[in-house]
């Protein structure tokens, strides 16, 4: 495999919220801890985790749109340089783009065309949007519609179009296919695959492992605010090639692998166990799991588990 340039490198990212209790107490809720993801140019990386694991916050952290009461820790490198808030503000919408979950993220009172052009009316923006719409087989009349008038098939393509108005080098897709049937999902995913094949890095945030395995190059498994494993898609072909017990549990839960579920639920951020967050549900649990767990390389992937080898 030829060496591709790293476009985004997230090292030990943490996001916490300050919450005020009754009286004067203040607790910091660590919603994300020790999140590590790396995306190369032309690569599609899926971050897979169940709901409540803090996936959307990852997208918001990279774009610099976290709520004001949140505190961001760790390092985000974009193109080898630290991605500061100022740089995020300069790059977002142009080099770094977000594709949201649904048309609810579009202004209900603004027509599609002007909205995608961000209100710009110059002929260059218009021409560019016309070309994008052509590429996605959207009729030009769609530009004159309001978001509520879009059909289900159109609004995915419209949302992807918003990303294409810039010159995206990093595309973040946050649960782009909620409640869609498989045929639609494949079509939407093909749009993202296309973007990756054209050289952009794509970060796909999803709860659906099956979907991720179909299109992504690499999968980062996310559990209770932490990345527990970073593995190549082909490692998911068999249970043995996976490294973390949670990834293995996810694998076993896939329909083709027996639909088996493990007991228990993902812990709430306030009640996290010491050490490994998966500890209480893990069959290999031992005393050492309650200590700091390093994120280390195992067989070409990365894992946050002391017993993986």
């Amino acid at each position: 495999m030829d060496e591709k340039k790293i476009i985004l490198e997230i090292q030990n990212l943490s996001v916490s919220f300050q919450q005020y209790d009754k009286g004067f107490g203040r607790t910091d809720l660590d919603v994300i801890r020790d999140l590590n993801v790396t995306i190369n140019e032309g690569e599609m990386v899926a971050v897979v985790g169940s709901s409540g694991s803090g996936k959307s916050l990852l997208a918001h952290a990279v774009l610099g749109i976290l709520p004001y009461n949140s505190v961001l820790g760790g390092t985000i490198l974009y193109d080898g340089e630290e991605l500061t808030q100022k740089r995020k503000e300069e790059l977002r919408g142009n080099e770094i783009v977000l594709v949201p979950q649904s048309v609810a993220f579009l202004d209900p009172l603004m027509k599609i065309g002007p909205q995608i052009r961000k209100g710009k009316n110059d002929s260059e923006s218009k021409r560019k949007l016309d070309r994008i719409f052509e590429g996605y087989h959207l009729k030009q009349e769609v530009q004159e519609l309001y978001p509520f008038e879009l059909s289900g098939g159109m609004n995915r393509r419209v949302l992807v179009s918003t990303a294409m108005m810039g010159n995206p080098r990093l595309v973040i897709a946050d649960e782009p296919t909620p409640g869609l049937h498989m045929k639609m999902v494949r079509r939407v995913m093909s749009h993202f695959r296309e973007l990756a094949d054209q050289g952009a890095g794509v970060l796909l945030i999803t709860h659906d492992l099956e979907q991720a395995l179909e299109v992504a190059d690499r999968v980062a498994v996310f559990y209770a605010g932490t990345t527990v494993e970073d593995a190549d898609v082909k490692d998911f072909a068999r249970e043995e090639t996976l490294r973390h017990p949670y990834s293995k549990a996810l694998w076993r839960a896939l329909p083709q692998n027996g639909f088996q579920f493990i007991s228990g639920t993902q812990p709430y951020v306030k009640e996290l166990p010491k050490g490994c967050p998966f500890g209480p549900r893990c069959e290999y649990f031992c005393e050492a799991c309650e200590r700091e767990i390093p994120y280390r390389e195992v067989r070409g992937g990365k894992v946050r588990c002391i017993s993986a080898e």
Binding site: I65, G93, V97, L98, P100, A104, F105, D107, L109, K118
Partner: peptide, 25 residues
């Protein structure tokens, strides 16, 4: 709202957000 969050994610800010989304709504 989600649509202003998305507008900010797309690089809009201040006056642009008011002109495109705030005033209208």
């Amino acid at each position: 709202s989600d649509y202003v969050l998305f507008a900010r994610a797309r690089g809009e800010s201040g006056w642009s957000i008011f002109k495109n989304h705030g005033f209208r709504n």
